[in-house]
């Protein structure tokens, strides 16, 4: 359950919720609806989001071993899926424990940060095309969390957000 709603549920134990709390609940419910729409969009357009990224990636790294490119793609297919769920749950810890903590050492060990960084930039740019501004703003904190965990202090050159 989303932590904000959970807090309201606890508040309601002693008394009816105040009007300001009801308003907060209404906002949370509306935000949940938008998160669900964003989630569905990411789910239904997964291939449409990633296929142009593949083409761009292959153009940028024509000499690179395709297996390595596939590996990086698989990482970000998973990361985006987990980001989408973390957005629904409004829970950065879900993202941290379910994938980032585990994946960050794997990325470091493969010394693929440059490739991963390029893919992140392409992904962000692609999501800016596919999602509305509002949808992107819901997802962005989690994408940023993933970028920081996996790519550390590498400066994103294309990311506008």
């Amino acid at each position: 359950m989303q932590s904000d709603i959970e807090t309201l549920v606890h508040k309601a134990e002693e008394d009816y919720l105040k009007q300001s709390d009801i308003e907060l609940f209404r906002q949370q419910a509306a935000s949940m609806q938008k998160c669900l729409e964003t989630y569905e969009c990411l789910r239904d357009r997964e291939i449409a989001i990633f296929q142009p990224i593949v083409e761009q990636l292959v153009k940028t790294y024509p000499q690179e071993n395709p297996q390595l490119l596939e590996k990086v793609l698989k990482h970000w297919l998973s990361v985006l899926r987990y980001c989408a769920m973390a957005m629904l749950l409004k829970n950065p810890e879900y993202l941290e424990y379910r994938i980032l903590e585990w994946l960050s050492d794997i990325v470091k060990a493969h010394q693929m940060q440059s490739l991963e960084s390029t893919l992140y930039e392409l992904l962000f740019s692609r999501l800016s095309e596919v999602l509305t501004k509002e949808q992107l703003s819901l997802l962005q904190p989690f994408l940023e969390q993933a970028r920081t965990a996996l790519l550390g202090t590498l400066e994103p050159s294309l990311v506008g957000g």
Binding site: E46, I47, F50, Q51, V54, L73, K74, S78, R81, R98
Partner: peptide, 14 residues
């Protein structure tokens, strides 16, 4: 590289 194929192969588990 076909993403659809990757999604089939990739257990892509965390």
């Amino acid at each position: 590289i076909e993403v659809a194929q990757l999604l089939k192969d990739a257990s892509s588990l965390g």
